[in-house]
């Protein structure tokens, strides 16, 4: 019963590191490179949790989050926003539109894993 995680980021190297990190923890992983792809993968892959970058081409992380939260079918979906922009307004904005956690880059891999597991109730 391994949980499924969708990694959404436009930086290939960050995707590589996240993918490796999460796979090591035993999660099933899928990857999306921009916001639109992310929405499509949410439908097809049905992840339990989203690692969502904010600054992306086509659709920003905020927009993706809003779109997902607008659909009640996704209410169980956990969303962790990742951003390199650490301004407080952005943190507040992310939480306000329904993100479950907000992690600034560069993040501690240990902490991230802990947060993800907490959210998935799979400590």
């Amino acid at each position: 019963m391994s949980h499924k995680i969708l990694i959404v980021d436009d930086e290939p190297n960050i995707v590589i590191s996240l993918e490796f990190l999460m796979k090591k923890e035993g999660f099933q992983i899928a990857v999306a490179g921009d916001g639109e792809e992310a929405l499509a993968k949410v439908a097809s892959f049905a992840p339990d949790l989203l690692l969502l970058d904010v600054m992306m081409p086509k659709k920003s992380g905020f927009e993706v989050c809003e779109a997902l939260r607008a659909d009640p079918a996704n209410s169980a979906l956990k969303i962790v926003m990742l951003t390199a922009k650490g301004r407080e307004t952005e943190v507040a904005k992310g939480l306000a539109i329904g993100a479950d956690a907000y992690v600034t880059k560069p993040f501690s891999t240990k902490d991230l894993v802990v947060r993800v597991k907490e959210l998935l109730g799979a400590a």
């Binding site: 960050i14 590589i16 590191s17 996240l18 390199a84 880059k105 560069p106 993040f107």
Partner: peptide
């Protein structure tokens, strides 16, 4: 600046 740092730190 944080973007490359993120990869570097994580890896």
């Amino acid at each position: 600046l944080r973007t490359p740092l993120t990869s570097i730190r994580a890896l």
